[in-house]
Design a protein around this nucleic acid. Structure first.
Lengths: 168, 168
DNA sequence: AATATCTTTCATTTATTTTTGAAAGTTTGA
DNA sequence: TCAAACTTTCAAAAATAAATGAAAGATATT
């Protein structure tokens, strides 16, 4: 397999994985493209490589910057803006975890907290089933939350050194 | 807040979370409904509670069974089929992890393995950037994979006892 | 074996998400 | 200050995903 073909396969696979995890396929593909690119690319180049429109490229690049996965660069003497992807997988994983935690886990934990406050008839099986499911899920969510907090504070070496080693 | 309202909020929140993670909203909602229901429900009841069609209810319940989150029950003397959700959050988390690993992680690891075999000019920055990104992601994916394997084999007590305690 | 009850399928419709591209907005330099 | 170079916006269109419901397929009952 040659580089060009491998690149396409990688972009395709990354896009598919992204869409299975609720991330816009194009966004994942642009990320993949920038990930394997040694140089920062312009909007034009992204548009051309992936055959997407200017509007799409612009919005997608903005989203990737919001996720902290891509940053703008300016090259001296050039008018154009260049986009460069963070290459360190540990940082990528952290940024994604951080964003999803903030956007999804935090709101859900808040709701679960409210819902586990609900009062009712302790003789009613419907009430008990509700209470116990919500309480259990709430506990799990809070555990995941604590785990993520620790991970987000941690250093790469700590993470790869201790977590993964636990699992042999 | 009373039970009926809390139940609706829970179903709504679970559905939203599901859709953010690439799981059909209705599927997550049906799961939520069954989770807080002390008794197994019929297709009719699921249809009525969530105002969805027979076809949708049927397919969604089948999917939930494929995920190992819901099972059919038969009540003696009754013709209808009843559906019951696994309530143990540890088992739910395991089943979801197991399925997603099988459906998504395994295929991606296979592709990454192939892609990291690609040969090319070591003086070419494009080749080196590709190789190093793919190799790093491949390593991360394999670490996650090992972690999941261990987790899937593990017992609940082991998991809650050691993993979460590491994180204080 | 005919009928009633219940389940599954799938072509069509509906809803949601994503993309487009032209127009408006912004910045830079002559 | 003007206009060329570049970026952003967003209403409309296209693509994709999900839901419907009637019909076909099962299964149990008499």
């Amino acid at each position: 397999m040659e580089l060009a073909e491998a690149k396409l396969k990688f972009i395709e696979a990354w896009g598919k994985l992204g869409s299975e995890w609720g991330i816009n396929r194009t966004m994942a593909q642009v990320h993949a493209l920038l990930l394997v690119s040694p140089e920062a690319l312009t909007t034009e180049e992204v548009m051309a490589e992936l055959s997407i429109s200017r509007g799409n490229a612009n919005m997608t690049l903005r989203d990737l910057m919001d996720w902290g996965l891509v940053e703008k660069q300016h090259k001296t003497g050039k008018r154009k803006e260049y986009f460069y992807a963070e290459k360190d997988t540990w940082i990528i994983a952290r940024r994604v975890a951080e964003e999803r935690k903030k956007r999804e886990l935090d709101p859900v934990i808040k709701i679960l907290g409210q819902l586990s406050e609900v009062k009712g008839d302790e003789k009613d099986p419907a009430f008990n089933a509700f209470k116990s499911s919500v309480t259990d899920i709430s506990k799990l969510a809070n555990n995941v939350n604590k785990t993520l907090d620790t991970m987000l504070k941690a250093e790469e070496n700590w993470f790869f050194g201790s977590i993964f080693k636990i699992f042999k």
